[in-house]
Each structure stands twice: as C-alpha cells, then as structure tokens.
Computed example of a mutant assay.
Amino acid sequence: MSRGTKLSLDLGASWGEGWSVEEEKSSKTFTLLDPSAHRLVFQKEKRKGKIVTLVGPFSLTEEEAQKTLSVLKKSLACGGAYKEGWMEFQGDISPKVREHLEKLGFKFKK
C-alpha cells in the first residue's frame, strides 16, 4: 500500500440491503409459589477465601423475598443478599438456615 491511499474495509453485504439483527425474546414464565410448594437446595461456594451458603431457587416476588431474607438475616445474625432467585448467606450456616426456613413453611429436596 502506498502512502496516501486508504484501506477499504467494505466487504460483504451492508446493513442497508435488508439485513437486520432480530433479538429473540425469551418467554420465561415466572410462577409464584407458596412456601410449601418450594423444593429448595443448598450450595456452598468460596468467594475471596470465605464460604458462602446459597439457598434456592425461590419463586417469590422481589418484595416477599427481601422480607424473608431480612427476617432470616436478623435471626441468624449474618449478612446476606437475594440475587436471581437465590439467597446468599455469609458463612457455612446451612443447618441453621434450614431450621429457620422450615419454620417459615419452606420444604427442601432430600
């Protein structure tokens, strides 16, 4: 290429010739369940060297989940968060969490 000429990068079809990008809309149905219809599981993860206990998946509204999480955090004296249908608790406290959730009417897979 000599000095003064520009490199042309126009290859293939252009967007003006009828090409379009269609986004596929996901039709995930979110059903709300009462506590006795839940089948929860526990998972443990290590994040930054600390153990985190995950409980879920919950099928609750965001408001109900935050209320339940708030009650659990106060009774367990630990930190936690609600993300994407899972409740996260700081520490390895699965027996305590199970006990408190069973009192609230939730059920677990065996």
Rank of each mutant, 00 (worst) to 15 (best):
K67R: 12
Y82D: 06
G56W: 02
D92F: 09
L104M: 15
H38V: 05
K107R: 12
Q43F: 08
Q66K: 14
Y82Q: 00
V71T: 14
T68D: 15
L69K: 12
R39E: 06
V21L: 15
L104I: 04
Q43W: 04
S59N: 06
L33W: 03
G4P: 09
L72P: 04
S59K: 09
S8L: 05
L76R: 09
S26Q: 06
K44A: 09
K6S: 09
L101N: 06
S36E: 12
S94F: 07
F42K: 01
E17V: 08
L54D: 03
R39V: 01
E22R: 07
S75M: 15
V71W: 14
F89E: 05
P95A: 04
L54R: 03
S26T: 13
K6R: 12
G49S: 08
L76Y: 04
F58S: 03
E22F: 01
G79F: 11
P57K: 03
L54T: 01
K107N: 14
L33Q: 05
S59E: 07
G80N: 10
R47D: 08
S26L: 13
R98T: 00
K103C: 10
D34W: 06
R3T: 15
S20I: 09
S70W: 14
C78E: 11
A37F: 01
F30M: 01
L76F: 02
G91W: 05
E63D: 10
L32V: 07
K74Q: 13
T31P: 01
G4H: 15
